[in-house]
């Protein structure tokens, strides 16, 4: 078989040059193989998703009878979630914790990063170095101590205690991240404002914050996501059933008797996964940016 593939480069001043393909038999085979592979990977990715979504509409409640395409779909498990379990509480709790944690984290991180990147003060180097070391420790090395500190402060079994734990824990890593981003922005803008007599807080609000929006979006997003699926800290801090978060509620639903609550769990899983997935997919640009920056700067 003689390869007859030829390329012509179409130059266009506005778009990048594109190749047009002249198809031959071997090219067609290759294209077909490529698409086969794409479909196979898509199946590998989609089967568990389709199965869990289908399961949530199954009439029976056991794992054994859960199928991806039920013959007589029903939404009774969704109704059960709202009438027989504390699912609505868990959902609102998690949403509340996620939002408050996001706001506090963004405020703490952006101000500390601003200070560390734009001011010279005694103890700056020590401070930066200590948080660099602190973020290397596995987060639950201090678990027992956090538990006892919250107990002493009377914050056990409160959402505020959990939020404080999250907001404090993210400072070291995210401060480095945002500080790294800020060092890439020339100081001339804020220095000019300073000469004009603007106060530091004014500069921070009107000049710095808009400039660091992309990285702050990443911090906000990741801090909003964390409480949805974090298991260790809520399990340790919260004990009343109506104060639980989704992660604990869903886990408990199937950890004991796997076979009996399965479809209700599936319905809950779908209700949690859908909004988070949409959020993730639509904001993935910021996530990729933030993660890349994190790996390169921290």
């Amino acid at each position: 078989m003689i390869r007859e593939t030829a390329y012509t480069t179409v130059s266009n001043p506005n778009t990048q040059p594109k190749r047009t393909l002249v198809y031959s038999f071997s090219e067609t085979v290759k294209t077909a193989l490529t698409y086969c592979l794409l479909v196979l990977i898509a199946l590998f990715v989609l089967i568990p998703i389709v199965w869990i979504v289908g399961s949530s509409f199954n009439p029976a409640s056991s794992l054994l009878s859960a199928t991806a395409f039920p013959e007589d779909p029903t939404i009774k498990h969704y109704l059960k979630l709202f009438t027989e379990t504390k699912f609505p509480y868990w959902y609102l709790n998690t949403l509340k914790i996620a939002l408050v944690n996001m706001v506090i984290s963004v405020i703490l991180t952006s101000t500390s990063a601003y200070v560390f990147s734009r001011f010279n003060f005694k103890g700056k180097k020590v401070g930066l170095l200590s948080i660099l070391i602190l973020q290397m420790f596995p987060s639950f090395m201090g678990m027992m101590a956090v538990y006892n500190i919250l107990w002493q402060l009377g914050l056990l079994d409160t959402h505020f205690g959990l939020i404080l734990t999250y907001a404090a824990g993210q400072i070291p890593y995210n401060t480095w991240l945002v500080k790294g981003y800020l060092s890439g922005i020339p100081r001339s803008l804020d220095e000019a404002a300073k000469i004009e007599g603007a106060s530091n807080l004014y500069i921070f609000r009107t000049i710095i914050l808009p400039l660091i929006k992309p990285i702050i979006t990443f911090v906000a997003l990741s801090q909003f996501m964390a409480p949805w699926m974090d298991f260790i800290f809520p399990r340790m801090i919260l004990s009343s059933p109506e104060k639980m978060t989704l992660a604990i509620g869903l886990y408990d639903m199937i950890s004991g008797n796997t076979n009996n609550n399965f479809t209700t769990f599936a319905a809950g899983a779908v209700l949690v996964a859908v909004p988070i997935t949409i959020l993730y997919v639509s904001l993935q640009k910021y996530l990729i940016q933030g993660i890349t920056a994190g790996a390169n700067k921290v």
Partner: peptide
Amino acid sequence: VLILLFVAVPI
């Protein structure tokens, strides 16, 4: 204050 209380002291 938050780092000391919830990160440094626990570690």
